[in-house]
Amino acid sequence: MASHTHDDGSDGPTEAAGAIHIEDLTKQFDTDEGVERVFENVDIDIEPGSFVTLLGRSGSGKSTILKLVSGVMKPTSGDIWFEPDNVEIGYVFQSPRLLPWNTCLDNIEFVHEHNPGYTEEMGKEYLDLVGLSEHYHKYPSQLSGGQRQRVGIARALSIDPDILLMDEPFSNLDEITAEELRAELLSIWQQLNKTIFFVTHDIDEAIELSDRILMLGEGQIYADLEVTLERPRSLDSEEFLAFRQRAIDTFHDV
């Protein structure tokens, strides 16, 4: 478990960030129709503190790669390792996956089984960070979709992860809420400098958020685009639209 204490002794998020290395990663499933290969010999290197997005169509294996990185799924072959070795990984899912019988605070407390130093004040601090200071003791059923996803983000951040995995976290939300959350995510990322490995099928979202965009299709990473646009990025700026066109052309290359 990563430390929750700054050098000055205060509790709260640190700026620890980890690197992800993926080498020759292959994943296949045994189905009734035979062996289904999702992707093959995938290599990815992600620098500490960077925001990297994996872009691909539905069913291309994006979420599978995140599951393999998180360790909830085992690869068929290949290696995944981190720097430092014992990184803490936070996971934000497409649906928030909150325990409906727990309040916001209890949902955050749930993931702190191995952190004896966890206090309720820490949980509140992370809920404050995502703008939920009025909702500590509410149940998920009492929150809007966007608020629930905020709790999911707060939960993942609360373990002070070196790496944050985000699996299409805004795809189930209306566009206005999604845009708000993207802005908040960028602000939090710039504040905490975590490594973020983000998955989406939305090209605009990928360009708006990322340092790098990896395109996954036909079982391969077929493009690695560095997004050089200055932040904050305006979706209707000329530079953004030009980059978007380039990304779309590349996306359809596969």
């Binding site: 998180s70 909830v72 899912f93 749930f110 993931v111 089984e113």
Partner: peptide, 13 residues
């Protein structure tokens, strides 16, 4: 099962 996977991803016993 999504909740079980969430629990697993956070290393919960």
């Amino acid at each position: 099962t999504d909740l079980l996977e969430m629990s697993n991803s956070f290393g919960i016993s």
